[in-house]
Amino acid sequence: NLFVALYDFVASGDNTLSITKGEKLRVLGYNHNGEWCEAQTKNGQGWVPSNYITPVN
């Protein structure tokens, strides 16, 4: 599942992941309501807002 970041997101805690607009990432899963997804980039792994990313076509 390859996705791309639509916006910059700055991590606010130990379990969140900073991403940069245009960065590619893999989604590993979603939380119970789908608002957050666990993602992996070359810089690490953590939670990002699911509305900040979109699938790569």
Rank of each mutant, 00 (worst) to 15 (best):
I19P: 00
K24I: 06
Y7R: 15
Q40D: 04
L25Q: 00
T20E: 04
L25S: 00
R26K: 15
T41R: 05
A5K: 01
K21I: 00
V10C: 08
G34P: 02
W47N: 08
I53S: 00
F9Y: 10
A5H: 00
F9E: 01
G34S: 11
S18Y: 03
I19A: 02
A11E: 08
A5G: 05
G22T: 00
K42A: 11
E35I: 15
I19S: 00
Q45N: 04
Q45K: 15
I19F: 08
V27L: 10
G13M: 08
G46W: 05
V56L: 08
Y7L: 12
F9D: 01
L17W: 11
N31E: 12
V27S: 06
L2M: 14
S50W: 09
R26Y: 07
N43T: 08
V10L: 08
L25M: 10
S12I: 06
G34V: 06
K24W: 04
P49N: 02
T20A: 10
N33W: 04
A11V: 03
D8G: 04
T54R: 13
G22L: 01
R26C: 07
Y52F: 14
F3P: 00
E35T: 09
T54Q: 15
V48T: 02
H32P: 14
R26E: 14
D14F: 05
T41C: 11
N33I: 04
Q45V: 09
L2G: 04
D14H: 06
G13A: 12
A11N: 07
I19R: 00
F3H: 05
V4F: 05
T41E: 00
K42W: 06
P49Q: 05
Y30I: 06
A11Q: 08
E35L: 09
T16A: 03
S18T: 12
I53V: 14
T41W: 05
G13W: 04
V27Q: 01
A39F: 03
Q40A: 11
H32W: 10
I53Q: 00
N57D: 10
N1R: 08
N33C: 03
E23Y: 00
N31M: 02
W47A: 06
K42Y: 13
F3Q: 09
G13C: 09
V4T: 06
L28C: 11
P49S: 01
L28F: 03
T16D: 01
G22C: 05
T16W: 06
V4N: 04
W36L: 10
V48K: 00
N31Y: 11
S12G: 11
S12N: 11
S50P: 02
E35C: 06
H32Y: 13
V27G: 04
P49L: 04
A5M: 12
F3N: 05
G34N: 15
T16R: 06
E38S: 10
S18D: 11
S12D: 12
P55S: 07
P55V: 11
S18C: 13
A5P: 15
G34Y: 07
S18L: 08
V10D: 03
T41Q: 01
P49T: 00
Y30E: 15
D8R: 03
T16Q: 15
W36D: 06
N51W: 06
T54V: 14
G22E: 02
G29L: 08
W47K: 03
T41F: 06
G13T: 12
E23H: 02
T20Q: 15
L25F: 05
S12Y: 02
A39P: 00
L17R: 04
Q40H: 13
N57I: 03
G13P: 04
V4L: 07
E35K: 12
T16H: 13
N33A: 12
G34R: 15
Y30C: 06
G46K: 01
G22N: 04
N33L: 06
H32T: 13
V56I: 07
V27N: 04
V48L: 12
N33K: 15
K24C: 02
Q45G: 05
Y7S: 14
P55D: 13
D14C: 13
L28R: 12
Y52K: 09
T41Y: 07
L2H: 02
F3K: 06
D8M: 01
A11K: 11
H32E: 14
L28G: 04
N31H: 11
G13L: 09
K24H: 07
S12R: 11
S12M: 15
F9Q: 07
E23P: 00
S18W: 01
F3V: 07
F3I: 01
Y30D: 07
T41N: 05
K21F: 02
Y52G: 11
V56A: 06
P49H: 04
N15P: 04
K24A: 02
H32I: 11
T20F: 04
N43K: 14
H32C: 15
V10I: 12
V48E: 00
D14L: 04
N1W: 02
E35R: 09
A11H: 07
Q40T: 12
Y52H: 07
P55A: 12
R26D: 14
Q45R: 08
K21E: 09
V10M: 14
N31L: 08
D14T: 12
D14Q: 11
T54G: 14
V56Q: 03
Q40Y: 15
C37R: 03
N31G: 14
F9C: 11
P55N: 14
W36G: 01
D14Y: 02
G13D: 14
V56S: 11
S12L: 09
D8T: 11
W47I: 06
S18E: 05
N33D: 10
Y7W: 07
L17T: 08
E35S: 10
Y52R: 11
L2N: 15
L28P: 01
G34F: 07
N15K: 15
Q45C: 10
T41D: 01
Y52W: 07
N51K: 12
W47H: 03
V27E: 00
L17V: 08
P55F: 07
I53T: 10
E23A: 03
W47T: 02
H32M: 15
N31A: 14
G44N: 08
Q45D: 07
A11P: 07
T54N: 13
K24S: 10
T54W: 15
L2F: 15
N33V: 05
K42F: 05
I19Q: 00
P49G: 00
S50Y: 09
E38H: 09
Q40N: 12
L25A: 04
L28T: 08
G29W: 07
L2K: 15
K24G: 08
N43Q: 14
G46I: 09
P55T: 11
G44I: 00
N43M: 09
G29K: 13
S50G: 09
G29P: 01
V4W: 05
V48H: 00
L17I: 04
I53L: 14
G22Y: 04
T41S: 15
I19L: 12
E35M: 06
S12F: 03
A39W: 01
R26G: 08
G22H: 03
G29A: 10
K24V: 06
N31S: 13
I53Y: 00
A39V: 12
S50Q: 15
N1D: 07
A11F: 04
P49C: 02
K24D: 06
E35D: 15
F9M: 06
W47E: 01
N57K: 15
N31T: 13
Y52V: 12
N51Q: 03
V48S: 00
I53N: 02
V4E: 11
L6S: 08
L6C: 02
P49R: 11
V56E: 14
N31C: 15
G22P: 00
N43W: 08
L25C: 11
V27Y: 00
N43A: 13
Y7C: 11
D14G: 08
V10S: 10
A5L: 00
F3D: 03
L28Y: 10
C37F: 04
A39I: 06
G29M: 11
Y52D: 02
G46T: 02
L25H: 01
L6I: 15
L28N: 10
G29E: 08
G34D: 12
N51L: 07
D14V: 10
N15R: 12
N1T: 02
T20M: 06
